[in-house]
Each structure stands twice: as structure tokens, then as C-alpha cells.
Design a binder for these strands. Structure first.
Lengths: 190, 190
DNA sequence: GGAGTCTGTTAATGATGATTAACATCCGAG
DNA sequence: CTCGGATGTTAATCATCATTAACAGACTCC
């Protein structure tokens, strides 16, 4: 019982993500989360210091993954073709959103329930990710003021993150294609 | 004390909308809502049969307003220019989103907390509103399959409804302009 | 072969919170 | 006037929940 135990934390985080996505942080009890992974209630305290800490770790992980991915893709090869960098960012985000709809949903909705300190860290990561996009976009639209680029970036995130809401309507492939097409168009004329 | 009383219900709905938008349905107590309008706690039961009923009425009202607006704008004058109808729908939705960010947020997030029966009614209204858009879009893109048009509509809503998240970055005027530009572009090539 | 760490379990404990009861006020109608 | 309805108030009631206690099996390392 050593190997399976290693996965417990991750297992809990995953189950909790699904539950939070479906019913919201306050709509899910510790007992619910425990049940979802086959243990009951207070067992979670062996892995996390509390419910908020669990959420904090979850959001930190998501934000960190997005930021890391952003930093990696934005600097992709050709520094002259900002166009290519934008495409890479787009594809990366879409892939993430389609693969982890629950995480996207929680990331979008539950920041307010994270304790102050962690919230600051998460916000910082989110800001860095946005800045990655803004940097690329400012190369494509040098005349566009930064505030507008930032707002445009948030708007595109809203578009891309709509996935969890229109789930099932379209096959993942078709959905990815649609989102890429729409986002590219939306960002082409700023 | 007759005239001011007439407003009580609306006053409560408004205060509750702001609170739900900020902290989520489960994150707000009846006591909180009462305090926000200057009465305390159980007084709300003189106006609503319960917390869920309050939310249900709120979402029904929002969905109804959007649907009504959609039905009105989509049929606007020129039936030949689907282009104009789309612009009208866009401007209407943007105006609503910028004017009532809290309502948009609640409408987007809290449907799951509404009791079954009301939820069905709300979903029906939402569906009608979406179909209004799909009808217009199908005229502009006759070759595009309906499922794709529906997904595109949801995606554009995601874009337009990003307002509450990027609040303050831009002046309302500039924001409306940006959203209109991006949405038009996103919907131009499906 | 036993001490210690890891993970769990099932009972408290203590808050918070929705809803209801019992009891005032105020105001317009008759 | 005074009766009734509309609105409120405060004090129960009853659940639900996060968190902590107390206790137990299992596996590791010595």
C-alpha cells in the first residue's frame, strides 16, 4: 500500500476539481470529496490542512501550468513571427481547455474562495500569463494601447473557456477548430 | 409606508444579485441579503418563499429580458440584412452586459442552484435566445452546420460576458467598441 | 519483533445558516 | 375606532459542515 498512496493527493485534487466545477466550492462538502475517492470525510486532513488549502493548491497548480505553458510557447522558435507565437498560445490554451474543462471552470470561478495569501500568488501567475499574450499581441498591433490588449486577452479567454458550457455539442476536434478560427479572427483586428 | 414597500422586492433582488455575483449563491446568507437592504434576516420570507425561490426569480427575469430583447432585435426592420440583425443582437447583448455585470455573472454561474422546475423554464428561455442568434447566423453562413453555429454562439457569449472579469481596465465606451469589433470578427468567418 | 510513521475510521465539537414561530407596528378601509 | 393585511423583529429549531479527538491497522526500518 505504498505505491497507490502516492497518488492519493492527486486523486483527491482531481475528484475535488470535478465536484467544484459541478457544484461550486461551497456546494461541495469535505465528506463529498472523500466519498468520491473512496475514503470518508476527515481522511482528507491527512493530505491537506483544510478545504481552502485544497482549493488553493488546485488553483496554484492550474495557474502555474498555464503560465509555464505560456512562457514556453510564446518564446517558441521564430522570434520574428509573432503570428506563430500567437498560434502556439492559442492552440496550447485550447488544448488545455478541452482536456481539462473542470479545471478551467474552477480556475475561472473560485478564486474568491482562496485565502488571501495564496490568492495573491495565483493572481500573479494569472497576470504573467496574460502578459505573455499581451506581449505577443503588441507586436502584431503596435498601435493598440496595452489596456485594450489586456481587455482583448480576457475576452478571448472568455471565448476559449466557453468550452465547458457548450460541452457535447461538437466533437473535440471540431470544437478546437472552431475556437481557433474564431479567436484568430477576433484578435486579427484590434 | 406604502410606496417604498412596492420597491422592496426589486430592492432585494438587486442587492442579492450583487452579493451572489461577488460571493456565489452558497457564499451568501439570507442574513447578508437582508442586511444589504436594511432589514434583518427572516424579513425576506415576507417577499420570497425561500433563498432558492429568490434565485429562481432572478434568473427567470434575466433570461426573460434577454430573450425578449433578442426576439425584438433579431426581427429588426430589414429582413434582408441579416448583417443588421446580428449587429443589433450584438449591441443589445453588449449593452446589457456592460450595464448589468452582476446579472450576467449570476446568470452564467448559478443555474445549477435553481430548483428543477424553474431551471427547466430558464433553460428554455436561454435556448430560445440562442436560437435567435443561430437563426440570424445561419443566414450569414448557410453552409455552416447548426451545431457549429450553436457552439459559436456560446463562444461569443463567453467573449461578451468576459466584461465582469476585465472590469475597470477600459472605459465602458471603449469596452463596448472592443467587444463589438472582436465579436463581429469572430463571427465573420465560420 | 517492536517503535514510529502514514492513513484511515468513527465520535465529538462548534459554527453557521435556512426556515419557522410568536409576537409587534403601521395603515388604510369600513 | 377597530379589524385585517402587510412587514418586521427576535428567539427557537434542525441541518449541515468543517475541523478535531481518540483510537487502530499496516508497513518500514532498525
Amino acid at each position: 500500500m505504498k505505491t497507490p498512496t502516492r497518488n492519493r493527493r492527486a486523486e483527491i485534487l482531481e475528484a475535488a476539481a470535478d465536484l467544484f466545477a459541478a457544484r461550486g466550492f461551497h456546494g461541495v462538502s469535505i465528506e463529498d470529496i472523500g466519498a468520491a475517492v473512496g475514503v470518508s470525510g476527515p481522511a482528507l486532513y491527512r493530505h491537506f490542512s483544510g478545504k481552502e488549502a485544497l482549493l488553493a493548491e488546485m488553483l496554484l497548480d492550474i495557474s502555474e501550468r498555464l503560465r509555464e505553458q505560456g512562457a514556453r510557447l510564446a518564446t517558441t522558435a521564430d522570434p520574428d513571427t509573432a503570428e506563430a507565437a500567437l498560434d502556439a498560445l492559442l492552440s496550447g490554451h485550447i488544448e488545455f481547455a478541452l482536456t481539462h474543462p473542470a479545471l478551467i471552470r474552477v480556475h475561472e470561478r473560485e478564486l474568491d474562495n482562496v485565502p488571501e495569501q495564496a490568492r495573491r500568488a495565483i493572481r500573479r501567475l494569472q497576470r504573467l500569463y496574460v502578459e505573455e499574450w499581451v506581449t505577443v499581441l503588441s507586436e502584431l498591433h503596435p498601435a493598440c494601447p496595452p489596456a485594450r490588449l489586456r481587455a482583448a486577452t480576457h475576452a478571448v479567454f472568455g471565448l476559449l473557456n466557453s468550452t465547458p458550457r457548450s460541452a457535447g455539442e461538437l466533437a473535440p476536434e471540431a470544437m478546437a477548430d472552431l475556437l481557433r478560427t474564431m479567436a484568430r479572427a477576433a484578435l486579427s483586428r484590434l
